[in-house]
Structures are given as structure tokens and as C-alpha cells.
Design a protein around this nucleic acid. Structure first.
Lengths: 121, 121
DNA sequence: AGAGTTACTTACAAAAGTGTTAGTGACTCC
DNA sequence: GGAGTCACTAACACTTTTGTAAGTAACTCT
């Protein structure tokens, strides 16, 4: 692991990344789009059942504003929108992937004693 | 990029990771420790000049509680404490590293026009 | 004409996060 | 014996984030 001099005060690379990815939902939304390529508003509601409509709309709006997602609106009724990753958004794959990997390992190691995986004594 | 079926509702690996790393300061603190190996409370104050004492203490406490950092208190006056990564904390290196890499690239691409790098017309 | 559809927005309220200021303990140095 | 040191903590206020509930637009289908 190499060592260099960084100044987290200004231009800290980790902070730059966090600027786009921080917030509970954003990385999960991105993660889902890496899997599915495309998602409609209602898809996200299904994929993230605990997010509220308000939050979902807001996070999507911010991701679009940040240039990570693009939104395609079909002029039809009932309305239809599609979200997908821009190339810029796709460039975050290493970050999201690292999170996924680590989380996978963590989940295995800390597999919770749920009704499913604990044999009834 | 392979595709598998995940359920972000329960046991989403990305969410598991976020649980430990989310929050503006935590990943930056970890990042710093990956560079420096050891840090005293006052070191962090220097490294992250914009964090408040209250936040710093709180984030460190949480990182210790989560098992990512260990805290060593020297019984001397004035007091001295040292924080370093536990093996569990070190296992997050791929995540922090990916963030650093991406942020580095982003900073290069979006190098802001500061007084330093803009010749005075 | 009334109900259904999708993708939202708005207003209000509760909860979480964060900053500011001041203070503590215990010992050493002047 | 008063000041200085370090690593914090407590109380209070404020701001940001998030949830809840309700509503909107516009067109199709019955």
C-alpha cells in the first residue's frame, strides 16, 4: 500500500466520490441499474420496497442532475420514464462493485440466525 | 458484468457495506488511517480541519463500536490515545481504495479553475 | 362519464445530523 | 499555585434529511 501526501481538507479524492454516492439510496439505485441496465420509476419501487415515493423521486432527480443517470420520458399515457446509467455513471462501477463484494463477504460471515438457516435445534 | 438475482430489500450487500461506511466522515477517517496506520485524536483534527470536535469524537466512537478501529489509551498526562484499523477495518481497503481512485480521476478531469492554475488572462 | 393508469409533486411534521460554546480530569511545568 | 496540555463530553440550537398523506396531469378503457 503506497503512501503519498494528501490533503483531505481540499480535493480529497474520497470526499469527491462521496459527493456523488453518499446517501443511503444512491449507491443502491446505481447498484440496481448496474444489474438491470434500465429501470422505470415503478421498477425502483419494487426493487427498493422500503423507499418512499418522495425519496425515490428526489434521489433520481439528483442522480440525473449529477450526470450519473439519464432519463427518457415517453410522451404517452399513462406516462413512462426510463432511467439508465450514463457513461459517467458507469464509471462508478469499481466503487459500487467493491461495496457489493465486501457486503457479500460480510453477509456470509455474519449470516444472521433467521428462521431459514437455523435448524430447529 | 454478470447478472444475478439480488433482493435489495433484505440482505443487499451494498446496504450492508453502507451501514459501516456511510456518513461523510467515516470513509475519510478510514482513508486517512490507511495512509498513516496510526492516528491520535489531535492528528485527525489536523487532517480534517473542517470537522468539529463533537463529530470527530462521535465518528471515532462509532467506528470503534463497529469493530473497524481499535483505540489504545495510554494512562498518562496529558492523555494520549491512538486509533488504528483492526483487521476487520482493513478489510475495507478495496472499498476505500475504489473511492480514492475514482475521486482522483474525477478531480483530474474536473480540475477547478483556482487562482493557481488559471494564468491571469 | 367515471375509474384506472403512471410518475410524480406539495405541504406538513417528525427525526436525524451537525455546529457552537463551555467545561472536565489529572497531572506537569513555571 | 496557576496555567497549560490532551482528549474528550454535555447542553442547546439549528439545519438537513426523511416520512406521511394527499393531490395532479392527461389520456384510455368501460
Amino acid at each position: 500500500m503506497e503512501r503519498r501526501a494528501y490533503d483531505c481538507a481540499e480535493g480529497c479524492p474520497v470526499e469527491s466520490t462521496l459527493q456523488f454516492v453518499s446517501g443511503k439510496w444512491k449507491s443502491v439505485i446505481l447498484y440496481r441499474l448496474f444489474q438491470e441496465q434500465v429501470g422505470r420509476y415503478s421498477d425502483f419501487e419494487r426493487w427498493l420496497p422500503t423507499i418512499s415515493a418522495r425519496m425515490l423521486a428526489r434521489q433520481l432527480r439528483e442522480l440525473v442532475a449529477d450526470g450519473l443517470l439519464e432519463k427518457k420520458i415517453y410522451a404517452q399515457v399513462p406516462p413512462k420514464t426510463e432511467y439508465r446509467l450514463t457513461p459517467f455513471g458507469q464509471s462508478l462501477w469499481p466503487v459500487i462493485s467493491a461495496m457489493e463484494q465486501w457486503g457479500r463477504g460480510y453477509n456470509l460471515a455474519h449470516a444472521k440466525a433467521t428462521s431459514a438457516d437455523v435448524p430447529a435445534k
